[in-house]
Design a protein around this nucleic acid. Structure first.
Lengths: 151, 151
DNA sequence: ACTAAATATCTTATTTACTAAGATAGTATA
DNA sequence: TATACTATCTTAGTAAATAAGATATTTAGT
């Protein structure tokens, strides 16, 4: 197997991550959010509603910092606090997906459609290969994250 | 073309970005860096030496914040300040790549080798497809970033 | 060469968002 | 029905950001 190709691809993938971070940063700024607020809002959309404690674990922030984070997002009407009916100590953070989309979608709109065009430009067999790569890479990154946070 | 497959892949790629951010965050914490310091250190490695002003533009931070960022990284011996010989107002930030690697490489070591194994598990023709995707996606993200920051 | 304007970084005062510790309120257990 | 536990919030202090302006250097016009 071509070792050069493997090295080149690893570097390219690293560069891809860097470029992605930059783009998300630019979107955040345009949306009037701090980089971290945008990032954590992304977590909320990705995972759906969760408790303040879960968000603290997920983000690595203290519960106090999460209180502030929710306050800021709530003030912008991007999330709502709700007490859990099964345990009234718990605060469920419910992302207001339509509001979040209304804020972010225009910024991602063109990117999204061009992304879909890019994806659609590949043959079905090729997409299966991409899918296989992404699935495996996600699993690998999750493993890495878990090892780092738990040891 | 299978529309479902395209949608699924777009979501998967989005999830990939999210997972990547989480991993980098975990690495930063383990390295004793703040998330943003780690991110910007990544920018420095990626781009190589640059002036304080360029870093300010790149990060979107004010020049004052960049002064603080460089101070912190310099104190940890991860970068060095140097005056440019052609223009002595300019401060060139030179990443001390060996020192940065000594700090981060152990944390990425296993991930990196497993990544290379993953890449190597694909056939050469398949890697060409991955490469084509990543190249196009990087260009697309760069375009998006430029439009957002310049309009 | 001299002056004014422009540029690059740093400094200072203020604000924002974080942590750590502890308070509050609700739940589970003995 | 106490007691311990859990989930979130509050408070005080700290770290890192911004905004405005200072300092030092370069560029351009005369």
């Amino acid at each position: 197997m071509d070792d050069e190709l493997i090295k080149r691809l690893r570097k390219l993938i690293q560069h891809y991550a860097y470029t992605s971070i930059q783009m998300h940063e630019a979107v955040a700024r345009k949306a009037g959010l701090s980089g971290t607020d945008h990032k954590y809002l992304g977590f909320l959309i990705e995972r759906g509603q969760m408790t303040a404690g879960e968000l603290a674990t997920l983000t690595g922030l203290t519960t106090g910092a999460v209180t502030g984070l929710i306050d800021r997002l709530e003030k912008k009407n991007l999330v709502k606090r709700q007490f859990a009916q099964d345990d009234r100590r718990k605060v469920i953070i419910e992302p207001d997906t339509p509001a979040i989309m209304a804020l972010l979608a225009p910024l991602y709109k063109e990117f999204r459609s061009k992304s879909e065009n890019l994806i659609a430009s590949f043959a079905e067999e090729e997409l299966k290969i991409l899918e296989a790569y992404f699935l495996a890479a996600i699993e690998l990154m999750n493993e890495t994250t878990n090892k780092l946070t738990n040891n």
